[in-house]
């Protein structure tokens, strides 16, 4: 097959520039890249016909060797129409994106970011495993956390009844350990973000108690 060098170089340039533009973040440039690449593809299809030749009309003396293969031109015609339609559709989309969000860039996916930001382990799946405590561990009376754990071991109802220890403990809990301690030990809920657990300080522990 004979190939026209000018067309070949032009095609290469169109592809190169097109790919470069396609990698930009700005949508308009992406569109320009697509236009260039699709024109490059059209040139490629055109070249598959080989060397330029006569119109493929059977007239007296012209041999088949002198004629141009017409099929690639038919294909290119279809491809041009399709790429034209898609370009206008893309333009409409970009304009709409600009009108709505004042944005001419490929936007991040919010849900993706949310999923990426969520904690590595899912609190709910690790819940209901009570904190490992041992009566033989060294007790530090100054540590309110251990005091509370002891209280719970001795009196499982702690925090529910208004016994003296329970009341103190309740206070301690509300004051100091509400968000991460109790919610962590018993009533871990579905919140992937600790923020909402903080905000509704009464929610998760109540549920834990009801179980």
């Amino acid at each position: 097959m004979t190939i026209n060098l000018t067309l070949l170089v032009l095609m290469g340039a169109l592809f190169a520039v097109g790919v470069h533009l396609l990698l930009e973040r700005s949508l308009t440039r992406v569109l320009l890249g697509i236009i260039l690449i699709s024109n490059g593809v059209n040139l490629l299809m055109l070249q598959t016909a080989g060397r330029a030749g006569l119109a493929p009309i059977v007239r007296g003396d012209a041999g088949f060797e002198d004629m141009l293969d017409p099929l690639p031109q038919a294909l290119v015609l279809t491809a041009i129409v399709i790429s034209f339609a898609l370009t206008s559709l893309m333009l409409a989309l970009i304009y709409r994106s600009w009108a709505l969000a004042r944005q001419d860039e490929v936007a991040d996916d919010e849900e993706d970011r949310r999923v990426a930001a969520q904690p590595v382990h899912d609190p709910e799946e690790d819940s209901d495993v009570p904190a490992e405590t041992s009566e033989f561990s060294e007790a530090d009376p100054a540590d309110p956390h251990q005091a509370r754990q002891r209280g719970r071991l001795l009196n499982p109802q702690a925090g529910r009844d208004a016994t003296a220890g329970g009341a103190v403990e309740d206070q301690l809990r509300r004051g100091l350990h509400e968000p991460d301690d109790d919610a962590g030990a018993r009533g871990r809920a579905a919140e992937p973000d600790a923020g909402s657990a903080d905000g509704s300080s009464d929610g998760p522990p109540r549920r834990g108690r009801r179980r």
């Binding site: 697509i34 490629l44 989309l93």
Partner: peptide, 25 residues
Amino acid sequence: RIRAGVTYVVVSIVSSLLFLITIGV
């Protein structure tokens, strides 16, 4: 939908262009 649509359209167009190049070759 526009945000998601633009990504989808660009990816699909690129894949179609690849397919077209393949047809040419």
